[in-house]
């Protein structure tokens, strides 16, 4: 078991190498660079000499491979470089955005679970009845609205009409996390409640449920003891995927609610071709995915002992 976990964590190294190299290469392929992007934003043209000296200062005049290995060398010495845009230390900038993202992820996942599991189970139990159709329609609605639309609607009703929440988030507080978390939870719940419904339906029609009912075990007991447990495998897979992408931040929601997390940081970095910052983000995402997957695989096993972990001898 320990060996397994260790091996999985060691896989992180090749993934990190591949992914940082890929993103380095692709950003170069994407054309433009930080110097030109800044020129576009300010709308001010600077002379070729100024452009060249700015590039040289950032090391952008060097060949691609040299740039990569310089970056990698610095990384191994614990230096992630400074941002091309703000001139701030990349690692500490990134770190300063993490708490906001972590909080938003936690709150929205929690909300999602609280909304989607009960509603999904209810829809499955009432399959093809009025309740089921109502719940599903609501989920379609949540699913077909882009999140900026949900965000603006919520902001309009809660901040301007009802004046419950402020438009501008001031620091990390209950008030300011509410609307972004609800926005994200609406979209995710719309998805998950349908997954929960499908998974529960699958289980409900299995022989053991039918058998249990025939033996006189109450429906409620079957549902909570066996069905939900079995359906949890699917739900867990999806949830971990979501946690992964949520931890990567959600640029649109973050910028609408002025939520100072890594999503906006990442998108700004990509748009501005802020290579060191992009590298930090890419590494963060890789670490998240490897860890989240590991945890998922371990919990599959805990939930369903029939599943064997790779490498374990039977």
């Amino acid at each position: 078991m320990k060996k397994y976990v260790l091996r999985r964590l060691l896989q992180l190294i090749p993934i990190l190498l591949v992914i940082t190299f890929l993103s380095f290469g692709m950003m170069r392929l994407a054309g433009s660079d930080a110097v030109l992007q800044k020129m576009e934003n300010t709308g001010m043209v600077v002379s070729q000499e100024v452009i060249d000296s700015a590039r040289a200062e950032l090391g952008l005049d060097k060949p691609f491979l040299t740039q990569y290995f310089v970056w990698l060398g610095n990384l191994l010495r614990g230096d992630m470089g400074t941002s091309y845009i703000s001139g701030q230390d990349v690692f500490s900038t990134f770190l300063s955005k993490l708490p906001a993202t972590l909080l938003l992820t936690a709150v929205s996942i929690l909300l999602t679970i609280v909304i989607s599991i009960p509603l999904g189970v209810l829809a499955a139990v009432k399959q093809n009845r009025f309740t089921d159709y109502m719940i599903r329609t609501a989920s379609f609605l949540g699913n077909s609205m882009p999140n900026f639309f949900v965000a603006l609607l919520l902001m309009y009703f809660f901040s301007i009409r009802l004046k419950i929440f402020p438009v501008i988030a001031t620091g990390i507080s209950v008030q300011s996390v509410a609307l972004p978390a609800i926005t994200l939870a609406i979209a995710m719940s719309a998805k998950y409640l349908r997954q929960v419904r499908a998974a529960v339906l699958d289980e409900l029609s299995k022989d053991y449920v039918v058998g249990a009912r025939a033996r006189g075990i109450s429906f409620y007991t079957t549902l909570t003891k066996s069905v939900l447990r079995a359906a949890l495998v699917t739900i867990l897979t999806l949830l971990t995927l979501s946690i992964g992408s949520l931890l990567g931040g959600t640029a649109i929601v973050e910028s609408i609610f002025l939520w100072d997390g890594v999503g906006k940081l990442a998108v700004d970095a990509i748009n501005m071709r802020d290579y060191p910052m992009i590298q930090a983000y890419v590494m963060w995402m890789a670490i998240i995915y490897v860890c989240v997957n590991l945890i998922t695989d371990l919990s599959y096993r805990a939930l369903d002992p029939r599943i064997r972990l790779g490498g374990e001898k039977v």
Binding site: M27, A30, M285
Partner: peptide
């Protein structure tokens, strides 16, 4: 698939 999931889609799309 880890690489694909972890890789920022925006970077890939730009390329």
């Amino acid at each position: 698939s880890d690489v694909c999931l972890a890789f920022p889609g925006l970077v890939f799309a730009l390329a």
